[in-house]
């Protein structure tokens, strides 16, 4: 089975720590992944701005030789799916990938209290958790994967980031982010986590501006730290 890691451009540029923890985590769990050097951007920012782009072809060319592609973050992954890229049926968001492979309870030894932000793309596009809008049986793949109690916002509504939206309607984007942050902070967590660094970037930028003292970590960092903890304990 040939695996590749898709690193969204903004994650590569802004969150090298998340790239690192994802690579280490996959390695720790025994997955050998290629990281194609020539990958750049999936094209989401273009299409969501109403511009045409040929970056789809590029993604397809780079990843077509692999059996499965793992992407960091549900936003870009679900974009390639909804736009019908040729890799649509073999690309998975990291959490989803690990869940499909049967991993469970990976963060049971995580020592801190986690508030988890389920992003719209993970709930309402990739179906990692039951969206509140649907009448289907309850499930939460992230919770099962982590195996630890996670605090969640009372509403599974959007955090207000929305990519292009945050630059078009900054005030309303802030208002939504602020209420999401308040909702998450209610449980008095030590750290806020999620699968999408884009939402976390938005929430963190609000927390910084408003002087909320809270840490943000990607889910791969949480799992990796927890596995390290397990090693130390045993």
């Amino acid at each position: 089975m040939k695996l590749a890691l898709f690193i969204p451009c903004y994650v590569k540029e802004l969150y090298p720590n998340v790239v690192k923890s994802t690579i280490l985590l996959l390695d720790r769990l025994g997955y050998k992944v290629d990281i194609p050097k020539s990958q750049t951007c999936c094209g989401q920012a273009f299409v969501n701005s109403g511009q045409s782009t040929n970056l789809a072809k590029r993604m397809d060319n780079i990843f077509h030789e692999y059996d499965e592609v793992i992407g960091i973050g549900s936003s870009c992954v679900s974009f390639t799916k909804s736009q019908g890229y040729s890799i649509a049926n073999k690309i998975y968001e990291l959490t989803d990938f690990l869940y499909q492979k049967g991993h469970r309870n990976l963060a049971t030894n995580y020592p801190k209290k986690i508030a988890f932000h389920h992003s719209c793309h993970s709930i309402r596009h990739l179906a990692l958790k039951t969206p509140s809008e649907l009448n289907i049986p309850f499930y939460d793949k992230v919770k099962d994967l982590l195996g630890v109690e996670i605090m969640q916002a009372s509403k599974d509504e959007c955090c207000g980031f929305g990519g292009v939206y945050s630059l078009k309607e900054g005030f309303l984007s802030y208002v939504m982010g602020r209420s999401k942050l308040d909702d998450l902070l209610l449980s008095n967590p030590d750290v806020i986590s999620g699968v999408d660094m884009s939402c976390l970037m938005h929430l963190q930028s609000i927390a910084q501006k408003d002087n909320d003292n809270i840490q943000f970590k990607h889910i791969s960092e949480i799992i990796l730290e927890s596995l390290d903890e397990t090693l130390q304990v045993s």
Binding site: C120, Y165, S173, M176
Partner: peptide
Amino acid sequence: FACTLCNS
């Protein structure tokens, strides 16, 4: 563009 594409 008055939309975050949240899909709700």
